[in-house]
Design a protein around this nucleic acid. Structure first.
Lengths: 221, 221
DNA sequence: TTTGTATACGATCATACGTTAGTTTCTTAT
DNA sequence: ATAAGAAACTAACGTATGATCGTATACAAA
């Protein structure tokens, strides 16, 4: 035994991360045992320590990478989109699309912060604030420009994020709705709410499928 | 030793439940150890078994009681409120007020369903569907009556619930906002969204504090 | 004041935990 | 061809886990 044929560091590391995220989602981080993780990856427990220093390090790296990716992708999605309404639509679409594809990462990043040591916790909270700040700024601009009406943009941002992130807990790729449908409906809810009004657009008829990217330039400010 | 002076079953049971909910919130159910629970309650580990049969039973009872209370309180809040818009406002207010006061129960009921055995899981899911159905029916009535405009009331219900439940994760009683403020802002978001429009009410100026009950009869259908 | 039950105790079971140490072998770059 | 380092192994550490005994005593009802 000892080292096994065909073993390759980066490949093993990626498997550990993938399986680890799934086990965190299934059991919670504290209850995820390294023995089970090792077994599902196909290693002896001790061999995991070739890839991370401690269980805490594994959690931090998983969440840290997730947050940095989310921030980078959000910036990319908002890049070159001008106008608060267009930017808000782009933010909503990007957040939903990203979250619907990374359910396990999202779960860890939202519900396992409690298991981070103080120093690691501060790092992640700072990144999260960065992300929230992008949305708050965007809402502030909209209010300042008169397109949006919000008594408190911080609260509105939390409410919007909670609504959008919640979608990734029930969304099933094989379900009735396409990702585009989900994006369209949530965009409409964020902008107009539930109330009927003659100012509402007819963009709600989301029967067509398969188009994942929203059309950012169809705003109606 | 043996039985301790002043011991009283119902009192001990209530303490176990309170501390248990807190530990579940802090560590997750699987990672919560009965030894720590016993220590914080002031018992030997074995004595816990005078109050529940297994760790699984404890979790189920906690979540079950929470769901039944939520349903009962929701029914009470909606009782005698007529009209989809008034009922929607009452639902939103009740959900928020209840959730802001029972953070630990809400956490367990939302994120520890994964730890329920199949049979127990089915019971809770059924109760949860009952609760969701109340909101969905309410939205359907609003759409049928022309007061609400929603392409899919199921999705809208999930989105609304996610937004409202999310509020209880960041709400701090000692914070800047009163519960009434939170209710008012979320009601406005649910009904109107973020977009500015001349049809919006001026009920957003929520500087006053201390009034926890919303005024259900101020709807403007 | 007696009696039955509720509620606690201490001891213990078999199993599982995260982590470390030391060793071996596969892979890669010279 | 070979040396260096990456990546796996076996074995073991001290501790913690949920649960089950049998036993003792405080409490509530008679």
């Amino acid at each position: 035994m000892t080292r096994v044929a065909g073993s390759h560091g980066p490949t093993t590391a990626a498997t550990i991360r993938r399986v680890g995220l799934r086990l965190i989602h299934e059991h919670g981080f504290e209850a995820m045992s390294l023995r089970q993780l090792a077994a599902e990856v196909g290693l002896q427990p001790a061999s995991l320590y070739n890839h991370f220093a401690t269980k805490q390090d594994l959690l931090f790296n998983l969440i840290h990478d997730h947050m940095r990716t989310l921030l980078a992708q959000s910036d990319a999605a908002l890049h070159a989109v001008v106008g608060p309404l267009h930017r808000l639509r782009a933010f909503v679409a990007n957040h939903l699309l990203y979250h619907m594809e990374k359910k396990h990462e999202v779960f860890a990043a939202n519900f396992e912060l409690r298991s981070l040591e103080a120093k690691n916790h501060r790092v992640i909270i700072a990144l999260r604030r960065d992300y929230e700040a992008r949305l708050i700024t965007l809402l502030d601009d909209g209010v300042a420009g008169g397109m949006l009406h919000l008594p408190d943009t911080h609260i509105a941002a939390y409410a919007i994020l909670a609504m959008l992130t919640g979608a990734c807990t029930w969304y099933k790729p094989e379900g009735r709705l396409s990702k585009h449908d989900v994006v369209a409906m949530h965009t409409a809810l964020v902008l107009h709410g539930c109330l009927a009004s003659e100012h509402q657009p007819s963009a709600h008829h989301a029967q067509h499928r398969g188009q994942d990217r929203p059309q950012h330039r169809l705003g109606h400010a």
